[in-house]
Each structure stands twice: as structure tokens, then as C-alpha cells.
Nucleic acid binder design. Structure first.
Length: 275
DNA sequence: CGGGCTGTTGACTC
DNA sequence: AGAGTCAACAGCCC
């Protein structure tokens, strides 16, 4: 297993970062903004900086793979793409890699880094519904009710892996945690939803929780750092079958295989997760 | 050395 | 509506 296989911030990591940021930043004012990669913004740099400078942070919460920071000037919307760090530093300390830096009125500052496909967006207080990348997000994967999950799936004709990865359907699941989620549910990633019976949908709902909650409870995965620079407590030993090609299935000992599912790969137990 | 692979998201086509 | 392909990249594998 290679560390670089795992650099995806998904729901457990984003929930954890949002919680940490909320604890540290509510009530703080942004005193200066430094942008090192304008490409990750949704506004011209000058406009972005002027709109967010001086803002007081009111709240921080997760929506899927996005961190929403509510300020009295509007919204900061952050997506770490395929991996990155948000780190809180004491005055003067600077990390080597960063795309943007926010300084606060207590002297501390926040560096935001991601290896490429990340976003640091701004939306005015009343403009949130015009922000296309977040306005269509589905319910957070751990917040959707069993009943709503059932109703939503009944309306879908896609394959189950595509559905779970579609952020407009259910938000927060990515290609790292999905392997274990489908294994818990004993469902093949290419299974068509309209062939699933009620029992299978129930199993899938439970599996979403079984796949995400252990990591959430440990502050996210080991390959992502919290805002203080410490890795999450969810380690490769906690992963059931994801990225464990050739190892035995924890349930039936059958060898885990890696298969192509559209443009992504999937790790499955061919015995537990028959097509 | 370099082609292949990995991840997220939106745009685009059929 | 859903599926497929592409593009935007760094970094590591073999």
C-alpha cells in the first residue's frame, strides 16, 4: 500500500477540519489575505481580497467535500480537491507549500494548500445560491435520513458507484471510502440501482455509516493532517478492503481484487460483492 | 526516460 | 438521465 494512493479529503476529513476551524476561528477577523495561486479563485484577485479583508468569522461547517466559512462579509468556500492541508500557524511561521494565506487579528494565520485541483471561492452573503459548484450539493452522506435515502435511490437508474460519487445526489463520498462502503453493503460497484431490493438499499444506508463513521471518530485518515499538523487516526489497519489487492477479505478470506469501473478502479471481494 | 496511474470537478457529447 | 471522454496537474511506479 502506497501513501500516495490516499490523499483524498472526503467527508471524515472535511468534517474534522471544519470542526477544528470553527473551534479556533469563530470571532476572529481576517486582517490580511495573501493569494499565491489566483487560478483557484472564482473572482479576480483584487476583488477577492477586498471582499474578504476585515471580515469576522461567524461559523464554519462542512458540506460534502467543501468547507463553508461564514463571515459577516460573505462566504469563503474551500475545496481541497485531491488532497491538501489547511494549517493554523502562530505568528511568523510559514509552511513551504501554500496556495493562500489568511492572517487573523490574534496574530495567527491559516495556510491553505492543495496539490492542484482545489478551490478557494467567495460568495456574498446573499449570493450563495448563485455559486454553482456548491448550490447543487446533495444532503451530507451522514445526515440524510434512512427514509430519504430510500426515496432518492428509488428515483435513480444509475449504477450504485456512480450514484454514491455524484455529489448532487449525496455529498461527501469519494473514491477512497467507497470501496469499504460497498464491501460493507455486499454490493458490486456496477450494480444497477433499479435492480436492488429493499433489503439491499437498507444495507447500503447502513454501510455508508459503517464506512465513514470510524474515520470521522478518529479525526479522519492518516494521510491528511489536522489544522495543527497532526495526522488523522484512521489508519490502513482500519481499512477493510480498499487498496488491499491480493489480501484476504476480512469476512470470507477470498482474495481482494482490483477491477476497472468506468474511469476509476474499484477494490472488491469477488465473493461477497457479486455482480 | 517516459508512459501509466491516481484523485475531483465541470464541460461536453451521445 | 446517465454514461463516456476530456482537461486541468504533481508525483510516484516500473
Amino acid at each position: 500500500m502506497r501513501l500516495q494512493d490516499f490523499q483524498m479529503p472526503e467527508l471524515p476529513e472535511i468534517y474534522s477540519r471544519a470542526k477544528e476551524l470553527k473551534l479556533e476561528l469563530v470571532g476572529r477577523c481576517i486582517t490580511s489575505v495573501d493569494i499565491l495561486q489566483t487560478k483557484s479563485l472564482n473572482l479576480p484577485e483584487k476583488e477577492f481580497v477586498s471582499r474578504i479583508s476585515g471580515a469576522e468569522i461567524r461559523d464554519v461547517f462542512p458540506r460534502g467535500k467543501w468547507i463553508f466559512i461564514n463571515t459577516d462579509a460573505g462566504w469563503l468556500l474551500i475545496n481541497l480537491g485531491m488532497g491538501g492541508e489547511i494549517l493554523l500557524h502562530e505568528q511568523g511561521v510559514k509552511p513551504q507549500k501554500l496556495r493562500a494565506d489568511l492572517a487573523f487579528d490574534d496574530g495567527r494565520h491559516l495556510s491553505i494548500n492543495f496539490w492542484w485541483f482545489g478551490y478557494i471561492h467567495f460568495a456574498g452573503e446573499d449570493e450563495l445560491d448563485q455559486h454553482k459548484m456548491t448550490s447543487r450539493l446533495g444532503e451530507n452522506a451522514l445526515d440524510i435520513t434512512r427514509e430519504q435515502f430510500h426515496i432518492n435511490l428509488s428515483a435513480s437508474r444509475s449504477r450504485i458507484k456512480s450514484y454514491l460519487l455524484d455529489q448532487s445526489k449525496i455529498a461527501g463520498i469519494g473514491n477512497a471510502y467507497i470501496h469499504d462502503i460497498l464491501w460493507f453493503a455486499r454490493l458490486h460497484p456496477l450494480r444497477a440501482i433499479n435492480t436492488m431490493d429493499a433489503d439491499e438499499i437498507e444495507r447500503l444506508f447502513d454501510a455508508v455509516h459503517q464506512g465513514l463513521e470510524p474515520s470521522l471518530n478518529k479525526g479522519g485518515a492518516f494521510y491528511e493532517l489536522d489544522i495543527y499538523g497532526s495526522p488523522g487516526g484512521f489508519t490502513s489497519q482500519d481499512i477493510k478492503i480498499g487498496y488491499k489487492e491480493g489480501k484476504p477479505c476480512p469476512r470470507c478470506q477470498t482474495e481482494i481484487t482490483k477491477i476497472k469501473t468506468g474511469s476509476t478502479s474499484s477494490y472488491i471481494c469477488p465473493d461477497c460483492q457479486s455482480y
